[in-house]
Simulated scan of single mutants.
Amino acid sequence: MPKHGKKYQEAAKLIERGKLYDPEEAVELVKKTASAKFDETVEVAVKLGVDPKHADQQVRGAVVLPYGTGKTKRVLVFAKGEKAKEAEEAGADFVGAEDMVAKIQEGWTDFDVAVATPDMMGMVGRLGKILGPKGLMPNPKVGTVTMDVARAVKEIKAGKIEYRTDKAGNIHAPIGKVSFDNEKLLKNFYTLIDTLIRVKPAAAKGQYLRSITLSTTMGPGVKVSTLRAPGKKD
């Protein structure tokens, strides 16, 4: 078992062991447990009742959080001609084609998300061994292989996040910063949870939302009741 520092242990005392908190309580509590000197990220871990070994039970996609994540992502767009111009006007940080491919092959990966037009994927495919392990490869399933590069860039800049089940069927995603007010964190939380419910695989059997945990970058986890989580509206 890893040893935790005094701040973590003090924060953990605020959480009642075994209790499932309503989302509103959980958000308030998780902010109280943040003790780092920097603005910690608030993260959600969701255990889904799926078996990711089966292709028809994998859960993967993207969602635009209404209040973003508190972090501005650096976006690279692989495009040419008019599409390259559209990407630049939409606010892409880097735009190019062969030049960007060559730069990445030389070891540069100073960006957070890569977008590509479909015609560029033959060229971008050569970067699979570099971008794949880093989770930076453009993918049509999450909307990063598209002709509408302007929309893709704007959504990413506005707070679009990707989600994907790991080998154990868990999804980890950021929903904002400790400095966000409770309402914004809750809105982002419900947007993510509602999206996961909406994309539930037809092959998934039994309880789908097995557990939900909120935490900050350096803080302990707060377990959230799955009975209150879905379907929350304004």
Rank of each mutant, 00 (worst) to 15 (best):
E106Y: 03
G49W: 06
E24C: 14
G18W: 11
V124P: 05
A11L: 08
Y190N: 02
N170W: 05
Y8P: 13
D93A: 06
K184S: 00
G159Q: 00
G122L: 05
M137E: 14
G135A: 06
A102I: 11
R198A: 13
E40D: 06
E162K: 07
P140T: 09
W108M: 12
V75W: 00
I161C: 07
Y163R: 01
V124E: 04
F189R: 01
K13V: 03
V44R: 00
T213K: 11
Y208D: 11
A150T: 06
D56K: 15
M100E: 14
F111E: 10
K157F: 10
D112H: 13
M120P: 01
A168S: 14
K177L: 12
G107M: 07
I193L: 03
A84N: 07
K6A: 15
P174S: 09
D99A: 14
E24M: 12
I193Y: 14
F111Y: 08
K187C: 01
E40C: 04
A45W: 12
N182E: 15
I156K: 00
K160I: 01
G231Y: 00
K32G: 10
K37V: 15
V115P: 01
V46P: 04
V59N: 07
V95E: 06
E98K: 14
T69P: 00
T213F: 08
L227P: 08
V95P: 07
A90L: 10
G18F: 07
G68D: 00
A45V: 15
V46K: 02
R164D: 06
A158Y: 09
I212T: 04
T117R: 00
P2G: 12
Y21H: 07
G159D: 00
G70Q: 03
A12G: 12
G61K: 06
P133A: 09
V153T: 04
K157L: 07
P23D: 09
V44A: 04
G135L: 08
R198Q: 14
K157N: 05
K232M: 11
R198W: 05
L29K: 15
G176N: 03
P230F: 10
G128A: 13
P23T: 07
V77I: 14
I212Y: 13
T165N: 09
E16G: 10
M120K: 04
M218L: 13
T217E: 03
K32Y: 04
K19W: 13
E98V: 14
Y8R: 15
I130R: 13
D39G: 03
V63M: 07
P66R: 01
D110A: 08
E82K: 09
D148V: 08
I104V: 09
T109S: 08
L14Y: 04
T146M: 10
K32D: 14
P118Q: 10
